[in-house]
């Protein structure tokens, strides 16, 4: 190195701070103290609250009655297998409806964005559909489509069943909500992305498919999962039409025993699916974020 000013010629610069030996930094020592303190406080406060609950709640006069009607272990044990079997129907309905809703929702969102005058009716219908469907309570659609279509078709095949038309009602209502989520995602992609795609000669459709939609869909995964968790519970609404799924089965057992524990069993089953579903969504999102800001495997 050349000596530019002549003044620093005799003293060599100190080695970089990071290379000099040292233990924890001042900041790390402070953070460690803080961490210990927070863990201690959290443990103590949790202990106090749990102890109060465990000690005090059973002393309440009403607790015994609450326990008998909602948390009767014998009833729980006996009603779990039939309700779980019935819950399998909920799961199957969900597994068929969810993908259908996602596809239909995306198609409706795209239909609302078409610009061709020839396809204007498609756009008009998509707009009326989302407005109309979302303006009416879900339960009304279930009655209207479920009882309505089954009465109209009057056939004993699967396609004339309450189960089928209940599923259709869920698909109709949820696809309208989901399409709005997709549309918000599509509109959140900055115009400059479309400009870049079009400037390369990609057509409107190619720009949508390769540039806009992939970004839009990634962005709306959390609200979509929210809708799916909501759907997973609303599947139980089909029981209003008659099919014996978990809620219906719990209802039947409850009226037999005059005990509400079967409802708790159904609730536990719904939670058992909903919680992993949301955690899965969080996990997928985190993974996606890491991928986008990390080095990809070639």
């Amino acid at each position: 190195m050349t000596d530019l000013d002549g003044a620093g010629a005799l003293t060599a610069p100190a080695p970089p701070r990071s290379q000099r030996p040292s233990g924890l930094t001042r900041r790390q020592r402070w953070e460690r103290r803080q961490r210990r303190r927070s863990v201690g406080v959290a443990a103590l406060s949790t202990f106090v609250v749990v102890t109060l609950l465990v000690v005090l709640v059973p002393r309440l006069d009403t607790w015994q009655r609450v326990r008998e009607s909602f948390f009767d272990w014998g009833v729980f044990r006996d009603s779990f297998p039939p309700i779980a079997r019935a819950f399998w129907l909920d799961v199957r309905i969900f597994l068929v409806c969810a993908p259908t809703i996602l596809v239909l929702g995306l198609v409706i969102a795209l239909a609302r964005n078409v610009r061709s005058p020839l396809l204007y009716p498609v756009r008009l219908f998509a707009t009326l559909y989302t407005d109309g469907v979302r303006g009416v309570p879900v339960i009304l659609w279930i009655y209207l489509i479920g009882f309505g279509m089954v009465g109209l078709i009057n056939s004993r095949t699967f396609f004339g069943s309450y189960l089928f038309w209940g599923g259709v009602a869920l698909i109709v209502t949820y696809s309208a909500y989901v399409s709005e989520v997709f549309r918000a995602g599509i509109e959140s992609v900055h115009e400059s992305q479309r400009a870049a795609a079009r400037s390369l000669g990609l057509s409107t459709w190619q720009s949508n498919l390769h540039v806009v939609l992939p970004q839009a869909v990634r962005r709306v995964v959390p609200p979509l999962m929210n809708d799916l968790v909501s759907l997973q519970k609303d599947v139980a609404l089909i029981s209003l039409l008659g099919p014996v799924e978990a809620l219906r089965r719990a209802n039947i057992i409850t009226s037999d025993l005059f005990n509400f524990t079967p409802y708790v069993v159904a609730a536990v089953l719904f939670i058992a699916v909903a919680v992993p579903l949301t955690r899965l969504a969080d996990h997928l999102m985190a993974k996606e974020r890491r991928r986008m800001s990390g080095t990809a495997i070639r």
Partner: peptide, 14 residues
């Protein structure tokens, strides 16, 4: 457009 290349101020990579 495919015969005309364009580069933007804000890169606009995908």
């Amino acid at each position: 457009r495919r015969r005309i290349g364009m580069v933007f101020q804000s890169f606009n990579l995908f």
